[in-house]
Design a protein around this nucleic acid. Structure first.
Length: 567
RNA sequence: AGGGGUGUAGCCAAGCGGUAAGGCUCCGGUUUUUGGUGCCGGCAUGCGUAGGUUCGAAUCCUGCCGCCCCUGCCA
């Protein structure tokens, strides 16, 4: 008996969109009980993390309720749109793991129908051709607190409207001369209902329709009708379109339009330390602050892909963020948590010394090489093992040695014994310094009985260091990426986000030493450089001759945190 | 009295009249051949605020306050 109640509590609570859909399904408001959503990007730029939320919502909802999700390009402004963007958008959605199958559409597919509907509206006296200039339009529109005024052209005879619109269509009038407007209500408190523009003249070549058209339909007219044509049931968009819902409802109830989809709005994704506007991101590219739209520091999908974030972790991230109508800012920590959690399970462990310090094992024969077996991922037994060459001279991290250790330090220092991961216990016996006192190399002795990292007497060592055999190490360029901005809200204090740029958002390391197995790394690999972070070969610049690795995210480092507190 | 939204912890977010889920962050502890991971525990007498209704209010009612969006021939 009690189990039933328990089960109910275990169920994940529904978000408001799921609730709406389930209500609609339960009450038979969904034709054929098939939920149809759509992801409607405008192909005027690259997709960023914010779009992932919308993509996951639209495709995810359709998937969850056994419906389908259309990919529709909202291409109604040829001046800003480009085929290049269409291709990048498709690539990014596929990378996330979503498939729209054959349901790929473009608003431009409907230009013909849209034109016919406009003709019909004119004939019914519901739309008119206006000759107000943009300045006059603004004047007649009124303000937020004052009603607008009717345009002198509002009562233009139907026949004349028809003739002028057809002339617009035929290219007989210059841009800006005329505008087709819906005849709604200039006194509406909602400015979007004050006779919204339906068509404008633009002698621009369209990426798909070329020069077929010189008049182009507006969003408020095109979007709802496109939804209706495709049989969309739930049209979800961001909060700023709430004020447009009356226009949406108007367009979908035009006589002759059979299907009536509904619009629902949710809060867009914001993340602190990030810029999430196409205009500003473009500016970073133009100013050369980043190397391009796919710079690993950019919050674009192509950027995070190159950075080494996995699609699975991004989907997990947006699902953890949730969906609601409150404008919110998600903590960057959650993003990194999701990336680490996923990479921890899948990344192959390798040893890389970023800042090398030479270690000489005095009692190890100079001509000897041993191959030591190491597991590739302790989180995944199926990941297998690999062989690591071990020699007399090795490299460890500079920070893994301290001549005079601070309190709590249990790495290598004179007289102390540590473990070399997978290999042997070593004890520091002496230090070689230059004339200025800088440590050049550390001498150690090893315990032959500690092979593999344990001893017969079961004695414990507190520290374990990663290492690379000096004789076998390979070189590489390693790019340590960090946040692009140093403040939670870039530009929040000075108004200029460029003031908050992080000068250390990219640190290039050229003297690192890598274990030889990394010779086989290729872009797309998820790697963990042990005790350091997750890395991936750079998709542009990596090659076997010149390996280049990007840091996706660091490992958590509680020792560094402790040190910071001590200071 | 312009319109439309929205206020639950440092950040997200459940909750839908029966006495504040969960995650991230943070703080302890523990395990550990990664100072990683895992595991255990802690973190709102309080739900913008003031009243009201009720045996009982984050949930219902009223007033007030804060924040966001809207005056493109952009989407």
């Amino acid at each position: 008996m009690g189990d039933v109640e328990l089960d109910k509590k275990e169920e994940k609570s529904l978000n408001f969109l799921e609730r709406i859909i389930e209500d609609d399904l339960a009450s038979g408001r969904v034709p054929g009980n098939v939920v149809v959503t759509r992801f409607p990007p405008e192909p005027n730029g690259y997709l960023h993390i914010g779009h992932i939320k919308s993509i996951c919502l639209n495709f995810g909802l359709a998937e969850k309720y056994g419906g389908r999700c259309h990919l529709r390009f909202d291409d109604t402004n040829p001046e800003k749109e480009d085929m290049e963007y269409i291709e990048s958008i498709k690539r990014d959605i596929r990378w996330l793991g979503f498939d729209w199958g054959t349901y790929e559409y473009h608003a431009s597919d409907y230009y013909g129908q849209l034109y016919e509907i406009a003709l019909k509206l004119i004939k019914e006296g519901k739309a008119y051709v206006d000759s107000l200039t943009p300045e006059q339009m603004k004047e007649y529109r009124g303000t937020l607190t004052e009603a607008g005024r009717n345009s002198p052209d509002r009562d233009r005879p139907i026949e004349e409207n028809l003739r002028l619109f057809e002339e617009m269509h035929a290219g007989k009038h210059p841009e800006g001369k005329y505008l087709l407007r819906a005849k709604l209500d200039m006194a509406s408190p909602n400015i979007n209902m004050r006779d919204p523009a339906l068509y404008r003249i633009k002698f621009a070549s369209h990426p798909r329709t070329g020069d077929t058209w010189c008049i182009y339909p507006m969003y408020d007219y095109t979007h709802p009708i496109s939804d209706a044509i495709e049989g969309i049931t739930h049209s979800i968009c961001t909060l700023e379109f709430e004020d447009h819902r009356p226009a949406y409802d108007w367009a979908t109830s035009i006589d002759g339009i059979e299907h009536a989809p509904h619009q629902y709005e949710f809060a867009r994704l914001n993340i602190n330390y990030f810029l999430m506007s196409k205009r500003r991101l473009l500016n970073l590219v133009k100013l050369g602050i980043v190397t391009g739209w796919d710079d690993p520091r950019m919050p674009t999908i192509s950027g995070i892909r190159r950075r080494g974030y996995s699609p699975e972790s991004m989907r997990d991230f947006v699902s953890r963020v949730g969906v609601a109508k409150v404008e919110s800012v998600v903590d960057y920590n959650l993003l990194e948590f999701c990336v680490r959690e996923d990479l921890n399970k899948r990344a192959k462990r390798v040893m890389v010394v970023l800042d090398p310090l030479k270690v000489v094992i005095d009692n190890y024969p100079d001509d000897q090489v041993e191959y030591i077996e190491a597991d590739n991922n302790p989180e995944d037994p199926l990941a297998g093992t690999r062989l690591l060459p071990f020699c007399r001279e090795l490299y460890i991290e500079q920070e893994d040695f301290m001549e005079t250790p601070v309190k709590g330090y249990h790495r290598l220092f004179p007289g102390n014994e540590i473990r070399l991961k997978h290999a042997y216990y070593i004890t520091c016996t002496s230090v070689v310094k230059d004339s200025e006192g800088k440590v050049l190399e550390v001498h150690c002795s090893y315990d032959p009985g500690s092979k593999g990292g344990t001893t017969a007497d079961g004695r414990k060592v507190k520290g374990t260091s990663h290492w690379v055999s000096a004789r076998h190490a390979i070189d590489a360029e390693i790019r340590l990426y960090d946040k692009l901005f140093t403040t939670e809200y870039p530009g929040g204090t000075t108004g200029n986000y460029l003031d908050d740029l992080n000068p250390e958002s990219l640190l290039v390391v050229n003297n690192s030493k890598l274990e030889p197995s990394l010779r086989d790394a290729k872009p797309g690999d998820y790697l963990q450089f042990m005790r350091s972070g997750y890395f991936t070969p750079d998709s542009h610049d990596h090659s076997a001759q010149h390996p280049v690795f990007n840091r996706s995210v660091t490992l958590k480092d509680s020792w560094a945190k402790k040190l910071q507190k001590m200071n």
